[in-house]
């Protein structure tokens, strides 16, 4: 058996393996790009889905736990509320200076979104508890917030990915999860940390475009000291902001909220 395939066979097997789910990360990225840009490839993927669909028939329906719908509803409410607030505040492609970012942050703090209602909605989406170093700036102690969670979520009207940001106490990481299927391939999403009286947002790193979950270290000495800790995500050139601080539009910002 030879390993050589014609270009047409390459396409066919790429489409087929995309449907099977066996591509490696790089191949998957290539296939996802083709799926967006090449109608012929998209049609081939559809054909594969159709060909293999009888294999789904063997799957018996299973009664879904009630809390799944409750969580979905809560998640969607959260997405809508945040999209609304962001839509009023940020336009895609707009370059933000730090001062603007700070004003936007001020808006976020005033808005009801920073309050408990939205946090309660979003609580359903994640399971994690806040580490002590995040609680102290909020004037909270672990006892007070036992069982609470830190969470943030964003949607940009389907143009940019929806992200869930969650803080994992045990691992000491910030986990950024892409919920939406789409990710920008010609830009990087950079995660920033802000707090009161901080001169420049601190970069926590880039969202990995090839993975659904990016884990970022959060144990830096220069963060999580002040009040009102906040996470923002901006759209930057590939590889991240070329300067100290963000250059691209905020696609997400949210206070780190301890959730009841």
């Amino acid at each position: 058996m030879t390993d050589t395939f014609t270009p047409d066979e390459e396409r066919q097997t790429l489409a087929g393996e995309l449907v099977l789910g066996t591509l490696d990360a790089l191949e998957r990225q290539r296939a996802d790009r083709l799926l967006e840009s090449d109608p012929r490839f998209a049609a081939e993927v559809e054909s594969w889905r159709g060909r293999l669909s009888p294999l789904d028939e063997a799957v018996a329906p299973v009664t879904v736990p009630d809390n799944v719908w409750i969580r979905i509803e809560a998640g969607i409410k959260g997405l809508e509320a945040q999209a609304e607030a962001l839509g009023a505040q940020a336009e895609p492609g707009q370059v933000l200076l730090f001062d603007q970012m700070r004003r936007r942050v001020a808006f976020w703090r005033r808005s009801a979104l920073a309050g408990g209602a939205i946090a309660a909605c979003l609580a359903a989406l994640v399971v994690s508890s806040p580490p002590t170093f995040l609680l102290q700036p909020l004037g909270l102690t672990p006892e007070v917030v036992r069982g609470q969670q830190f969470v943030a979520v964003v949607n940009r009207d389907g143009i940019l990915p929806a992200l869930l940001v969650q803080v994992d106490a045990a691992a000491g990481t910030i986990e950024v999860r892409s919920v939406s299927a789409e990710r920008p391939t010609d830009k990087s999403l950079e995660v920033w940390y802000l707090e009161d009286d901080q001169p420049v947002p601190v970069s926590l790193g880039l969202v990995d475009a090839t993975a659904d979950v990016t884990r970022l270290a959060s144990s830096r000495q220069d963060v999580l000291k002040g009040r009102n800790p906040l996470i923002a995500v901006t759209l930057e050139p590939l590889g991240g902001s070329p300067v100290e601080g963000p250059t691209g539009p905020i696609v997400y910002s949210g206070k780190l909220i301890p959730v009841e």
Partner: peptide
């Protein structure tokens, strides 16, 4: 599987 289902329907809503 419940988590994946929840994520699936949020994607359905968005896409």
């Amino acid at each position: 599987a419940s988590e994946a289902l929840q994520e699936t329907y949020i994607k359905v809503w968005q896409n």
